[in-house]
Nucleic acid binder design. Structure first.
Lengths: 385, 385
DNA sequence: TTGAAAGCGCTAACAC
DNA sequence: GTGTTAGCGCTTTCAA
C-alpha cells in the first residue's frame, strides 16, 4: 500500500506549514483509497520533494559519511583523503548540488556580496562604470547588488539600509546630487563595512576614493585647442557644488593662462546639457567677438554646440573647434566625430572594485586611505584641427 | 608571560571564534600587566564588540524578554501586546537594529532577492530596462543582483549557477546572442525558481515573457513614411536568428504591401550598426532609383544614415526621410531630431519584474503562461515629413 | 500574551 | 582522517 513513512521526512518543506502539511498528509494517508486520492497525495509528495534542494546532509546520508566530511571535501580541505574527496565531489556534481550561500555566509559571517549605489543606471557614464564593477566582481567571485538613488537622498539612505540588512561585505557609492548629509555612509564605516566612493565622492568621509583626473583632462584638452590655433575658447561647465566641475574649470583656466590667453568670464557658462546648450551657444556666437572653440564638460553638450554651429553655416573644425568630455559612444555617432576627453569609465569601475576588494580582504580599517586617480586622455577626432 | 603569537593575526581568526576569543580575553585579562598588553586587549575587545551587529538575542537580553517575543514584536505579530511591541520597536530603532536577512531567508526559505541576466549593461536599451527592473523591485522590497553575460554562453550559465547558490527567488533573463542551449534555464524552472524572459526571449522554455510589439512598431512606422509621401523605403535590419528582427522586417513588408508598394529586396539590407550603415547607405543612394526613405532597426543605424544623407547634400526630411527604432536618447541629440519607434524600455523592465513577482507570490507553476506584449508608439520628430 | 526549543544549511573546534 | 557537536540569527510550533 502506501508508505506513510515518506511524510515524516519532508517536514522541513514549505515555509512555516510543518504542522498543517503533516496533518494533511497523515489524514490523507489513512483515508486515501481511490486512485484519484492517491494521485493527489503523490502530487503533494512530489512537491515537497522537489522544492527542496540537495543539502550536505543529504549527500552525507547517501554516502554514509558525516556532513563535516562532505563539507570539507567540497572545500578541498587538506585533512580529507583524496579518495573521499573524489567520491563526494563526483556525487555532488552528478546530483547538481548547489551550496547554499545564505547558510554558509551566515555561518562564516562573510558574505561575498557587494552593494553598489549609483544615481542613475541609464547614463553612458554610470552604466559603463557599473559594467566595470560587475566584471571585476565576477572575476573574484563576488556578487553585485544594485540600488539606484535616482538622485534622491531618501532613496540613497534606504539603499544603504538594505545593504546593511543584506550583510554586504562592502559598498561602492557615487553620491546623489541631493545628498548633503553623510551619516548613512558613516554608519557603514562604523559597522566596519568598507566603502569606496567613485567619481561623485564624499569628502566628509574618510575612505578610499576613485576619481577621474578632471583637471588634467581639461588642461590637455584646452591646450590641444590652443596648439591647433584656437584663440578664444568658450567653456561650458556644471554648477560648482560638485568638486568635479571645479576641477575641470580650473584645468581650463590654467591652460589658458599658461599659454598667455586671457580668462574671459563672458565666454564661460554654466551649461551642462543638450537643451541648455541649444540656447546658450547662439548667444556666444553672436557676440561681437565670438569664440573660435568650445570646451564642454560632457559630450551631449558638445554635440548641441556642434548642431548649433553647423546650423549657422560655420564649418567644424575650420571655423569653430569643439571638444567634449567623457568619450562616450556619442562621439563616434555625431558628424563629424567628436574630439573628447576619455574618462575611462570602465576602468574607473574596475578600479573602485579592486580597491574595495583590497580593503575587504585586508580587514577593514587598518590600511592607509587610497585615493586613486584615473588618468584621462584626449581622443582627437574631427571636431578639432 | 604574554603569548604574542595570539596577536599576530587576529583578523582572520575573528570569524567564528567567539568562544576561543572569550576564553583568550579572560586569560589575558588575568595576565596582562603592561600598558601595551592592555591596549592589545582593548583592541580585541573593541573588535569583538564592534564587528558584531545587534541581534534579536541582544535586544531580548537587554529588555529581559525572550527572543521570540522580540521577533514577533518586530514583525507586528497580533499576539503581542501593543505595549511590548512599542518597547521593542523603540529599542530596536534607537540602537539601529538591522535584521539579518541572511538568517531570516535561511529560516523561512524565502529570499527576497531576484537575479537579472543581461547581455550588456552599457546599452541604452538594457540599462533602461534594468532601471525599470530595479525601481519596480525596490518598490516591492526586493533586491536585485545582476550578472552580465557579455554575450557569452559560458558566463550566462555561470550567472545562473551563482543565482541558484544565492537562492534567488526568481530570475529575469534576456539571453545572449551566443546561447543556443537552454538547459541552464530549464534547471531553474525544474528547481521551481520562476523565470521571466524579456526582449531576447527563449522560445524553447515554457515560461512568462515580455516582448516589444516589433511587428506593429515597424508597421506603423513604415505606414507613417508612406502616408507622408515616401514611395521607396529602404530597410536596414538585423541578421534573422533572433525573432525580433524577423518581426520588424515582416511589419515593414506588410505595411508596404497593404499600401500597394512593392517589396524590393535590393533596398533591404542586413545592417544594424553605425559602422556598417556608413558603407551600406551610399550604395543605396547611388542606385539608379535610390530610396526616398530609410527605416532602420535601431537609432544608431538611423543616425549613420542621416550623416551620410546629409553629407551627400540631400535634405532631411525633404529629400530623404529617416526613421529609427528604440527612441533612445540619441533621437533628441542628432540633427534634425530623429523620428523613432518608442519601445518603452523602462516599462518593459518594470513589466517583466511585475510578472516575475506575480509568479513568485502566487507559487510558481500554478498560473497560466503570460505573454506580455509592450505596445510601441511612433514618436514623430523632424526626420520625417 | 509570552517563553522554550528546534531547526534552516553550513562550518569548524574539538575529540577520537 | 573522520565524526560529533555547537552554533551563525532568525522564525515558529508547542507549551504554559
Amino acid at each position: 500500500m502506501l508508505d506513510k513513512g515518506i511524510f515524516k521526512e519532508p517536514k522541513k518543506e514549505l515555509k512555516c506549514l510543518y504542522k498543517p502539511l503533516e496533518i494533511c498528509a497523515n489524514v490523507l494517508a489513512n483515508v486515501c483509497t481511490t486512485d484519484m486520492e492517491l494521485i493527489y497525495l503523490r502530487i503533494i509528495y512530489v512537491k515537497l520533494m522537489k522544492k527542496r534542494q540537495l543539502t550536505i546532509k543529504d549527500i552525507a546520508k547517501a554516502l554514509n559519511i558525516s556532513a563535516s566530511t562532505v563539507s570539507r571535501s567540497l572545500s578541498d580541505h587538506p585533512d580529507i583523503s583524496q579518495e573521499t574527496k573524489d567520491i563526494v565531489v563526483a556525487y555532488a556534481k552528478k546530483n547538481k548540488y548547489k551550496p547554499n550561500v545564505l547558510a554558509s555566509s551566515l555561518r562564516t559571517q562573510n558574505n561575498k556580496m557587494i552593494g553598489v549605489i549609483i544615481p542613475e543606471i541609464v547614463h553612458y557614464f554610470f552604466s559603463t562604470v557599473l559594467s566595470g564593477i560587475e566584471d571585476e566582481a565576477e572575476k573574484e567571485g563576488y556578487r553585485v547588488i544594485i540600488s539606484q538613488s535616482n538622485e534622491d537622498y531618501e532613496k540613497e539612505v534606504k539603499g544603504v539600509q538594505t545593504f546593511q540588512e543584506a550583510r554586504v561585505c562592502g559598498v561602492l557609492v557615487s553620491v546623489s546630487k541631493k545628498t548633503h548629509q553623510y551619516d548613512h555612509f558613516q554608519e557603514l564605516i562604523d559597522n566596519e563595512i568598507p566603502v569606496v566612493f567613485f567619481d561623485r565622492i564624499c569628502t566628509g568621509i574618510l575612505t578610499d576614493r576613485v576619481v577621474v583626473d578632471d583637471y588634467a583632462g581639461a588642461y590637455t584638452a584646452v591646450e590641444h585647442l590652443i596648439t591647433t590655433g584656437c584663440k578664444r575658447i568658450a567653456f561650458f561647465g556644471s554648477p560648482s557644488n560638485l568638486p568635479i566641475s571645479n576641477n575641470r574649470r580650473m584645468g581650463y583656466e590654467d591652460a589658458l593662462r599658461k599659454n598667455g590667453l586671457e580668462v574671459d568670464k563672458s565666454i564661460m557658462k554654466i551649461c551642462d546639457n543638450y537643451q541648455e546648450a541649444l540656447t546658450v551657444t547662439p548667444e556666444l556666437l553672436s557676440l561681437p567677438n565670438p569664440p573660435d572653440a568650445f570646451f564642454a564638460v560632457n559630450d551631449e553638450t558638445a554635440i548641441a554646440i556642434m548642431n548649433i554651429v553647423k546650423s549657422k553655416g560655420l564649418k567644424i573644425p575650420d571655423d569653430v573647434s569643439v571638444c567634449g568630455f567623457t568619450n562616450s559612444s556619442l562621439t563616434e555617432i555625431c558628424d563629424p566625430p567628436l574630439t573628447s576627453v576619455d574618462q575611462h569609465c570602465y576602468e574607473l569601475g574596475a578600479s573602485a572594485m579592486k580597491l574595495l576588494l583590497n580593503r575587504i580582504q585586508s580587514g577593514t580599517n587598518d590600511t592607509q586611505l587610497n585615493n586613486k586617480i584615473i588618468k584621462t586622455n584626449l581622443v582627437v577626432r574631427k571636431t578639432t584641427r
